Simulated scan of single mutants.
Amino acid sequence: MQFLGNGAFGDTWKVGNEAVKVICVDDYPKTRLEREVEGLSRVNSPYVVALHGVEELKLGGQQRPALRFEYIEGGDAEQRLASGGLVSMGSVRGFLRGVLLGVQAIHKAATIHRDIKPANIALRDGRWERPVLLDLGLAKQMDASTITVYPGHIGTMPYMAPEQLEGRRARKAADLWAVGVSVRQLISGRHPFYSEHETYTIDEAFTKLSAGPEALPNECPDDVKQVLDRLTAFVEHERGSSASNLARLASQ
């Protein structure tokens, strides 16, 4: 058994050829667990982590829910970024296409991820061209009632779309925004809107987003630039859909 990391709600371990996420928070909402299971059960895509099953483990005298996933060898994009590794211009189109295909599969399953970020993008076999979306713990089924009370902020603030900062519901466009922010960050090594080590109020963050992202490098392929600029459009409807953005990416 190998420890893989911990999050806000639990720890993840490698057990055999699976990754097991153990929920360690005593008051973790049952509805949130059911939402993650439901979201993943609807999706069948090589670009979204596969859920193998759910069970309970006895730890410290208490029963803890545990989710069993496929184990994806290769680490995640945040780990790569932390070690100074950036997506190359030769790989960026394939990486962006793969993430968009994962988002498209989630959206086709009537689900919104709501927490796309580099830490939730695994790299199968360590390859940028084979991204896999992880962690649907904050996912929302579009055909189900929500446990979120609005206005509210659901997700990870540096990757929240403007409408999320305003406390409005996250829709498909919010996932697309998070893809655009994540990929831009993985190209340059810097967040496209915020300065490192700075703390922002909601109003300050909103102002930063309204000013537009940092320009992409000149060597970035034109079709990739076009898609990333659409994905980080301040206005929701200008971001298009996963399908329309995939259509804009060149085949080679």
Rank of each mutant, 00 (worst) to 15 (best):
F3S: 07
D11E: 14
K14V: 02
K21D: 06
C24H: 11
D27R: 12
Y28A: 09
P29S: 09
K30G: 02
L33N: 07
R35E: 13
E36H: 13
E36W: 12
E38R: 15
E38H: 10
G39N: 10
S41W: 08
P46W: 08
L51R: 09
L51Q: 02
H52A: 05
G60A: 04
G60Y: 10
G61Y: 10
R68Q: 07
R68E: 05
E70L: 13
E73P: 00
G75Q: 10
L81P: 00
S83G: 03
S88H: 09
G94Q: 14
L101Y: 08
A105L: 13
K108M: 10
H113I: 02
D115L: 05
K117D: 02
K117I: 01
L123I: 04
L123N: 05
L123H: 10
R127M: 10
W128L: 04
E129N: 11
R130Q: 15
D135K: 00
D135S: 00
G137M: 01
A139M: 08
Q141V: 01
M142H: 02
D143M: 11
T146W: 11
I147N: 05
P151A: 06
M157Q: 11
A161I: 01
P162Q: 08
A170K: 09
A173W: 04
D175H: 02
G180C: 06
V181M: 01
V183G: 01
F193L: 07
E196G: 00
E198Y: 15
K208A: 11
A215H: 11
P217T: 03
N218Y: 08
C220G: 02
V224D: 05
K225N: 08
Q226A: 09
D229S: 11
A233C: 09
H237Q: 10
H237K: 13
S241C: 02
S244L: 07
A250N: 13
S251L: 12
S251C: 07
